[in-house]
Write a protein that binds this DNA or RNA. Structure first.
Lengths: 207, 207
DNA sequence: GACACCAGACCGGCCGGACGGTATTCTTCA
DNA sequence: TGAAGAATACCGTCCGGCCGGTCTGGTGTC
């Protein structure tokens, strides 16, 4: 099997991300990418025969990166219930190493795809489907691991979209809260008698 | 004070959302919006002198809608610690009423703005800043209310972006888990001696 | 000379927006 | 009251520019 994205292709994808980061999705044009990569448009189109293919490759690279990120985190996490959730918390919500400008760039590739052609996010959908499958059988009470994943997604997307500014302390606070929830859920598993508050719903108030 | 968006403007914004929903952000053109609204391009440009202004108005409308959504939910929620978090859970994660196709449309306005001109999402940023201010003084242990808000954002954005398909049962599971967390946090507040697991961190493992 | 790699001119189409025009309503003053 | 004229609401054409993609050609390498 042949590696589909040797060095040059990868460099072109980097250039694409750089254009998006600096000039916005609206200015993601073939000319701009070619200029960023110091190559002619003909050269660019030699490697990616259309803009759709270019963006598609970008999405695939981002999706693969995200998949290998959480799978490696999973490998490095001790076994036991909530292993995937713990992996996400430890790795994706760590203080400094994540949340770099580079990660932000690669993420906004997805939005470029969404603007270019919504069908192109399919690879990302597939990765998320895999992640949710892993999360579903994480050995925790239903919803707990999913809540952790959703919260991480929320922090992450809010940040990438520029809706909320990045605030390390906030990330840390949320991580602590989620870790507490995980710990509670795990010890409930062990002594299920103790979760008296579990089914307490607010009384059936009209919305 | 004059109402800035009388009926016709609102109708044009509806048309804009419809175009985005049906043809995608890439095909959001003035001609398309005018055609959707059964008006000439000249007429459209009479009300919104540029495309930027059109998208800006759309974002403002969406942001206002979101703000009044959670403020009204807040009003209808009984007092006490975690009021804002409970309001979000009860109202924004309710089974059926939310998560309509209409809401999805109005949300994707933000992505249209992001593609058109990232500066245009400022109104949405302001609304989120307000929400986070409310959440910060919600009377809960630090991070708990923020985790709830982040999880809701995550579910919501994953759905709007089309990254994960809509699955009611998943939403319900997450809501239950978050409600448990809220209940735990509240009773900890009342008897802080009981949160023995709170500070339990996974041992300092290298990432 | 066959092939991979790359350059850059070129084209057709589309899009934002300017502009001049018309119909309708509102204001003003005799 | 009603005519004149101003303001407003809306129309549709046109233009300049940009963008994706094609094409022709040029270079090095086997």
């Amino acid at each position: 099997m042949k590696m589909t994205t040797p060095k040059l292709q990868d460099m072109l994808l980097d250039a694409t991300e750089a254009v998006v980061a600096r000039q916005g999705i609206a200015n993601l044009t073939l000319d701009a990418v070619a200029a960023e990569a110091r190559m002619s448009k003909g050269g660019l189109l030699h490697y990616f025969p259309s803009k759709d293919r270019l963006v598609e490759a970008l999405v695939i690279r981002t999706a693969d990166g995200w998949r290998s990120c959480y799978t490696e985190a999973y490998e490095r996490t001790p076994e036991g219930p909530g292993r995937m959730a713990r992996a996400l918390l430890d790795h994706c919500l760590s203080d400094a190493k994540c949340w770099t400008e580079e990660l932000r760039r690669s993420s906004s590739a997805v939005f470029a795809a969404l603007a270019q052609n919504p069908a192109l996010i399919q690879p990302m959908r597939a990765v998320y489907a895999d992640l949710h499958r892993r999360i579903a059988k994480d050995g925790l009470p239903p919803g707990v691991a999913e809540a952790v994943a959703a919260a991480i997604d929320g922090l992450w997307l809010d940040w990438v979209l520029g809706i909320v500014p990045l605030e390390q302390v906030r990330v840390v606070r949320v991580r602590r809260a989620l870790e507490d929830m995980l710990a509670r859920a795990t010890q409930d598993r062990r002594s299920p008698r103790a979760n008296g508050a579990s089914r307490k719903r607010s009384k059936g108030r009209r919305v």
